[in-house]
């Protein structure tokens, strides 16, 4: 029964050519995007929980920046009011008093510097919170799907397909979470300041150009963070041997 000749043939180099083992395995980008986006939308509940890590982190960052811009705007408005007042007084008294004007300009400058360092500290903190939250969310979303990954590999998926699917998903999740988080943080701060000042004029007083830059930056940071933090678990999952991935129980 043991076919010695066949065995010898098989070990030879000729064996490989005969069966024509080929290498063309594809996953078109269109399909990859379709699958990933469906993955995000179909388990919307689960996705929202994963995304909440991003939303909260980015909301924090967005709120810090929004409050900064609003405070700047208010300060600027107050400063201008003061200067007008001073200008009015000097005009009234018709007696220039330069020293006083300089004083009033110097105080907000110092204050601003202290505020700035505090704000940088807050931004760094919120970025840390963001990073940890997003990494955790991504790690979980990959880990809970080891079995699915194993199945896909059995069906002929290359490691790169798995990574591609998860990275597209991470970007989708990142954009979704960041946009939500940015809006949440921004609107919350706007609301708080409007209540504190008892008027909606805060919106008018702030520098919208700067605000918009910050908001876009928030979305960018959230997306990049979620992409970066998904790379490691996705690559790890993709490299698993299918047998191991299939056995994982969560």
């Amino acid at each position: 029964m043991l076919d010695v000749e066949g065995l010898a043939k098989a070990t030879g180099a000729g064996g490989k050519e005969k069966i024509k083992i080929q290498r063309q395995i594809t996953l078109p980008w269109v399909e990859a995007v379709r699958i990933s986006v469906r993955n995000v939308t179909i388990r919307l509940g689960r996705t929202m929980i994963t995304a909440s890590g991003i939303v909260l982190g980015i909301a924090f960052l967005s709120s810090v920046w929004t409050s900064g811009v609003i405070q700047d705007g208010l300060q600027q408005a107050r400063f201008e009011q003061e200067r007008e007042l001073v200008a009015a007084t000097t005009r009234d008294q018709a007696k220039p008093d330069g020293g006083k004007t300089e004083d009033s300009a110097a105080v907000p400058g110092e204050e601003k510097q202290a505020q700035n360092s505090k704000r940088i500290w807050l931004v760094v903190m919120s970025l840390l919170v963001c990073g940890v939250g997003i990494t955790n969310a991504m790690l979980m979303s990959v880990t809970e799907r080891f079995r699915e990954i194993g199945t896909m590999k059995c069906l002929g998926a290359l490691d790169s397909f798995i990574v591609r699917l998860f990275l597209i998903e991470a970007i989708a999740l990142g954009v979704l979470g960041s946009v939500l988080g940015t809006l949440l943080g921004h609107l919350a701060m706007l609301g708080i300041f409007a209540l504190r000042e008892r008027s909606l004029s805060v919106a008018a007083k702030m520098d919208w150009g700067q605000m918009l830059t910050y908001l876009l930056l928030c979305i960018l940071i959230g997306t990049v963070l979620s992409l970066v933090s998904a790379i490691a678990p996705a690559v790890r999952a993709a490299r698993m041997r299918p047998a191991v991935a299939l056995q994982t129980e969560i």
Binding site: A10, G15, R23
Partner: peptide
């Protein structure tokens, strides 16, 4: 099919 699986690379194995 007389191909030693240990000699296949990742692409061939996926195929």
């Amino acid at each position: 099919e007389e191909v030693d699986m240990a000699q296949l690379d990742a692409f061939e194995l996926a195929w």
